[in-house]
Design a binder for these strands. Structure first.
Lengths: 206, 206
DNA sequence: GTTTGTGAAACGATTCACAGCT
DNA sequence: AGCTGTGAATCGTTTCACAAAC
């Protein structure tokens, strides 16, 4: 498939969220303009974003809300569920494992790990925290699609190497480090410090 | 100041992190090439990024690590500390309030709020959870620089309106909604669902 | 000889504007 | 008449390449 910009994919996710709202309100069709104004972008942008994947609208009319919902879910690959391993069961890892919206959208945490013997064996959301030492054994038996990294910075890269070696193709990284991964593995970063510093920059420069 | 791209600011944060590592290792100077390879970018990009703010290097030599550290901290506005209010003391809000790296970098959570009477009054990290109803009263007495929004999606916009009205100029938003803010207020989004869907897209399309 | 700083070139993303459907 | 789909134009970012400094 032709290369799609990251920014486009992010907007598609937003459109999906808005469409769900519109569908709840029983709206049957929607114009690119309405979708755009809801998301702080332009109608041309909406149409261009969608055009990469086909023509889903009707000229003079707009888009069918239910149809576009289906199409967007398809495009984003949300027609299935994903098995997720949480690596790190500290405060944030645990909180994420319990997060509702996670499972609701088809991302099911099936394994959760930690290194700390005091944490191993405890339960998060009915899921027993396993020793990260058994990562290889476990993932070979029951592979996961996505790993969420919530480890200390120091071990993030070595865990990543192990995950990549086990065939994990997608990593959501909360550790404040720049991960190196082999070709074919995707990483998305959630870097709290980075965003705070961007706010600091914005507050400073004006 | 001339408009600086978001991507540039994000990279500056990364450079800062790498420089801290290099400084710890006792490295005295560094070339744009070394900095670039550490962060997965190019030397030209590093030089261009820095050039927006001045010329900090020495031709033929590179950059002084300690000097560039100071300059980057200055540029990013990290020479001071920031007062942060956490809005939402659920699992994630609480976990964030306890997060070490937060305070270490000068972002100090001084207030934490919730709406739930079962949570109000409990302690997170020695900080008593306050009733979000007292937001106006509290922030007028002791203003904050940054608010971290960890509320349910439904109330995120109304809380944002109250924060903006109270003069809060920077918001880190974890709620999965697109916030509308008045001119002069900056929002950075940490949208977990969005990133997971981006991973889903990447896994689907190849 | 090495590495910066920076115009110029190349690239990529967004916006414009309008022909083509409904 | 209204709104989409899309080439063309515009705008912004990244990369190139080289003169200037050390």
């Amino acid at each position: 498939m032709r290369k799609i910009a990251d920014s486009t994919v992010r907007r598609l996710s937003l459109y999906l969220r808005f469409l769900e709202e519109f569908a709840e309100q029983g709206m049957a069709t929607i114009s690119s303009e309405e979708l755009a104004s809801r998301g702080g972008t332009t109608s041309a942008q909406v149409r261009k974003d969608l055009s990469f994947f086909g023509s889903f609208g009707k000229r003079g009319l707009g888009y069918s809300v239910p149809e576009l919902l289906v199409r967007l879910r398809e495009i984003l690959g949300l027609g299935r569920s994903y098995r997720v391993a949480m690596i790190g069961a500290g405060k944030i890892g645990g909180a994420l494992a319990q997060y509702r919206g996670f499972r609701q959208r088809g991302f099911e945490t099936v394994l959760i790990y930690d290194r700390d013997p005091r944490i191993i064996g405890t339960q998060w959301n009915g899921l027993r925290v396993r020793d990260v030492a058994s990562l290889e054994e476990d993932l070979r038996r029951e592979p996961v699609d996505i790993a969420v990294l919530v480890t200390p910075a120091e071990v993030a890269q070595s865990v990543t190497d192990r995950l990549a070696h086990l065939g994990v193709k997608a990593i959501l990284n909360f550790a404040p480090v720049q991960l190196t991964v082999p070709e074919g593995v995707v990483v998305k970063n959630m870097n709290l410090a980075l965003e705070l510093e961007a706010l600091s920059f914005a507050l400073t420069n004006r």
